[in-house]
Amino acid sequence: MNPVIHFEMPYQDATRAAEFYSTAFGWQTQALGPAMSNYVVVNTCDTADGRPTQPGTINGGFFEQTPDSPAQQPSVVIAVDNMQAAIAKVISADCSILGEPMHIPGVGSYVSFLDTEGNRIAMLQALRPA
């Protein structure tokens, strides 16, 4: 099975979103800046080496809403072992891949797709530990 390992939610105002989730739920946020498309990493639980320490918990991130990107809605990220094989399975199910896989430095390969119900979901093939 391929587990859900991350969530993502769009924002219009990164500071406002970070402050809300920090105040309401105690989440910790880290803005990555323009070099990383203004992505905001969100920790919802204790972590070690960037990974949740409590089984069953996940962390996530906030992405900036832009007028030229499709399906900007909350979504989940699914771990895959082989990005190309996973893409082939998604396509064979008559679903759409949204762009090309992108490399996230220190993390791995990432791509979003639309599932059979029109939901934006993403896949991540994590880098192998050295």
Rank of each mutant, 00 (worst) to 15 (best):
V4A: 01
R16L: 13
M1I: 01
T29H: 15
T23K: 00
M9N: 11
N2T: 02
W27A: 08
P10K: 00
M1W: 00
A17Q: 09
A17T: 13
A24W: 10
A24L: 14
Q28G: 04
F7W: 12
Q30P: 06
A14C: 05
E19F: 00
E19H: 05
I5C: 05
E8G: 10
S22G: 15
E19N: 15
V4G: 00
E8V: 06
P3C: 05
F20G: 01
A24E: 11
T15P: 04
R16G: 05
S22Q: 15
A24V: 14
R16E: 14
A14G: 07
P3L: 04
Y11E: 06
W27N: 10
F20P: 00
H6F: 13
G26D: 02
R16T: 11
S22N: 15
Q30F: 10
Y21M: 12
V4M: 03
P3S: 09
F7I: 03
T15V: 11
T29S: 15
V4F: 09
Q12I: 08
Q28R: 13
F7H: 12
M9Q: 10
T15A: 13
F7T: 02
Q30C: 11
E19S: 03
V4I: 14
Q28H: 12
A17R: 06
Q30H: 14
F25Y: 14
E19M: 09
A14S: 10
P10A: 00
F20V: 07
Q30A: 13
N2I: 00
V4R: 01
P10D: 02
F20A: 06
